[in-house]
């Protein structure tokens, strides 16, 4: 966190977040309050509303984002703790400029691996962290990775189908 003394002696500090590859410099006390959660900043300040607020107490997984490639509950993370960190939200996977989707997103579409879709962004982010760079993922690994995600419509079975499809295609293509 960078702190500088301004002309009249008041302290102000700013933090730097990298969200989906873009740098955001935010002033604490103005753009972000010390008590703001990362969910709040992403949704209300930066406009990344793909990250959902379900329970807002760390129990449902809807707010999951990647921080330094690891899945994190953004509702239990203070924004000021993320200074200098690289964050990826659902809007940042695939290739947003060309519109090319991540294989996980494609598989979710193909298998209709959602119903109301509210839990979907969080689930995809956890799966993204699980699959990237991990050559051998078992069904148990998938279930473990998703065990903190609340899906009330019961789309679990189609989610599992979609993920297994991604893994199978990846295996056939010999790519990670």
């Amino acid at each position: 966190m960078e702190t500088k003394v301004q002309a009249k002696g008041a302290l102000s500090s700013s933090i730097r977040l990298k969200v989906n590859g873009k740098i955001y410099d935010l002033t604490v006390g103005k753009d972000v309050q010390p008590w703001h959660t990362l969910t709040h900043t992403l949704r209300e300040k930066l406009g990344f509303t793909g990250t959902k607020v379900g329970c807002d107490h760390g129990a449902c997984g809807a707010c999951t984002v990647l921080i330094e490639e690891k899945p994190v509950l953004s509702c239990l993370t203070l924004t000021v703790e993320c200074d200098g960190k690289s964050i990826v939200t659902i809007e940042g996977i695939g290739d947003p400029t060309s519109g090319r989707l991540d294989p996980l997103q494609e598989a979710f579409i193909e298998h209709t691996a959602f119903q109301c879709g509210f839990c979907t962004p969080g689930i995809i982010m956890s799966l993204k962290a699980l699959l990237d760079g991990n050559p051998s993922v078992t069904e148990e690994d998938i279930k473990d990775a998703l065990s903190g995600h609340y899906c009330r419509c019961i789309s679990h079975y189609h989610v599992l189908r979609a993920v297994k499809d991604v893994i199978e295609k990846r295996r056939r293509n010999g790519s990670l």
């Binding site: 509303t49 659902i90 979710f108 209709t112 509210f118």
Partner: peptide
């Protein structure tokens, strides 16, 4: 589903 792309990319607009 017609809304599938919106759902998997986070573009689908819920009330909040």
């Amino acid at each position: 589903r017609k809304d599938a792309q919106d759902i998997v990319t986070g573009r689908a607009k819920y009330l909040d």
